[in-house]
Design a binder for these strands. Sequence first.
DNA 1: TTGAAAGCGCTAACAA
DNA 2: TTGTTAGCGCTTTCAA
Lengths: 353, 353
Amino acid sequence: MSTDDPFSASAAGRRSEARRPLTLRDVSEASGVSEMTVSRVLRNRGDVSAATRERVLAAAKQLGYVPNKIAGALASSRVNLVAVIIPSLSNLVFPEVMNGISKVLEDTELQPVLGVTHYSPEQEEKVLYEMLSWRPSGVIIAGLERSEAARAMLRNAGIPVVEIMDVDGEPIDAMVGISHRRAGRMMAQAIVEAGYRRIGFLGTKMPRDYRARKRLEGFIEALGAASLELADEEYYEGSSGFGNGREMTMRILERTPDLDFLYYSNDLIGAGGLLYCLEQGIDIPGQIGMAGFNRVELLDGLPRQLASMDSCRQEIGEAAARIVAQRAGSDTGGGERVVLTPKLTMGDTLLRS
Amino acid sequence: MSTDDPFSASAAGRRSEARRPLTLRDVSEASGVSEMTVSRVLRNRGDVSAATRERVLAAAKQLGYVPNKIAGALASSRVNLVAVIIPSLSNLVFPEVMNGISKVLEDTELQPVLGVTHYSPEQEEKVLYEMLSWRPSGVIIAGLERSEAARAMLRNAGIPVVEIMDVDGEPIDAMVGISHRRAGRMMAQAIVEAGYRRIGFLGTKMPRDYRARKRLEGFIEALGAASLELADEEYYEGSSGFGNGREMTMRILERTPDLDFLYYSNDLIGAGGLLYCLEQGIDIPGQIGMAGFNRVELLDGLPRQLASMDSCRQEIGEAAARIVAQRAGSDTGGGERVVLTPKLTMGDTLLRS
DNA sequence: TTGAAAGCGCTAACAA
DNA sequence: TTGTTAGCGCTTTCAA
């Protein structure tokens, strides 16, 4: 309490005028041990006597030394970073993928580093270039659709590349995900089996959301197999939320009042639609059935549980991270394919056949 | 179409057996220009004749060269990375902060790199150490509470450090956020003014969520000023969602049926509670008033708009990024303080006085 | 406008 | 168990 700065006496040192970051040399001098030995201690490598180890550790802590990984990486040509490239953080889906990745990588030396593309191919190229220039140990990247330049960069990087979320297409290297086309088909089949016939689709206007498009394609295909087609469609521009779901639903039902099923491209707009229909006194799922996609857990607790389909987000993240971790270790493998199967949840908004 | 690999003729090169990553030297040899000049072209530095510039660019593209930032950073001791350290991605709040940061940094050379602590001080120390060892140009980190070791690292790093979200405490360097204590007080005052007297609090059991705690402290303080105290409290462990909100609300109302206001620590559990109460036929906001926190936009479209308080997430991200960008450029400044004012939204669940 | 030399801070490889 | 030497791929600085 008598010092001018209560922190100045902390173990991490009294270098408030700290300018030049500390180097191994500083620790070496402070401990009277060679730089090399200091390096060994700090990396737990090789045999170092307990005594010197103590001395070095004490000196490093006392000075507040933080190693310079830039120099370390250059010297060893090893970088413990894994580039994770996703289209958006707002989508709820991607944070969960990220959690799966983190969970697996926590048990390894590897560290995920995040890049966001905002669904733009140009941004994707830029982010990729930026991240690859740090020579990461692997890349986990959402989707299979990308520019030829991006493909070339990934192919030339000489590191494991795992494309995630989607398996409808040809990967550059490894691939982990679900078939969105199949997910669309499965949902359509369940709806048709339940007896619905006048089916409307509601989605957000995102030309670059290939996975949503594939689901819709699969959906339409399976309807076709039952000699049905979409009775109406409604699209919204902007972010997904209850408000949009509500408005889209209002519009589509005004335009086509005899719809008996509403298929939403995600649970959030589906939930908005559900709330709207319930308010209107519509019998759900008797008069109109509804379904979304993603199986968003935070929505459990709506007046009715929305029918949906699990997109295996966390598992996808975990599997992708495992592939990278595995290969970073052994330097063998390549071209892994993990195809997960989405689970249909009927909830309370889809009649049972 | 006659080649064995449709991609092999792409501009980015035919090095399918790529092992050793390309270096400046490779580009130098391919273009017949010194490494130094190649470096200058690739960085748009110094005077280079249009002719050589062309040649170099063509060679680099043709080979698919991606610069090695590790070497570049070591040589120039400049790193265009900004470490962003947050407790969680699942919280909805942090992706928005991140968006604010990205938006501002997109106009600069700087790149955000994300680290997640899961509300654990140990994890925070680890992530911080890891990120600082890459010598970033700045750190943006959530909250003001951290271990002495973490503080020391940040103080010694010699780079701009912006602590965000909260301003109730002493920052290490710069600080951007709102006063959660004040936010709690403001909400309590609005509730008391509206005439509610039997007030219950519902929150998630997160001892490390200091901001939620400060809001509650401010809330209780302002109730005290009106000679009131909390009539009941209910806590839930786990993730925030409608389901938890619903169950907590059921429990607290069973235990204390005469409550006339429910204050939730966030909008998600608040929304669950709102749906529950409406189903029970409770008059909202006549019999019971309700409020949450964060002003989550995706919830606009609930049967009633939940009273809430904006936490200025995007603005916080933007302001923090501006501070880092500014200082990375000019090397002056320090100790900036930006205190934002949360806006109260009465919505439909808080009577107007 | 271009090139040559030195060195950023660390680690691999070898020597003592 | 510890130390020495060389060099990772770039950029800075200086010379041509």
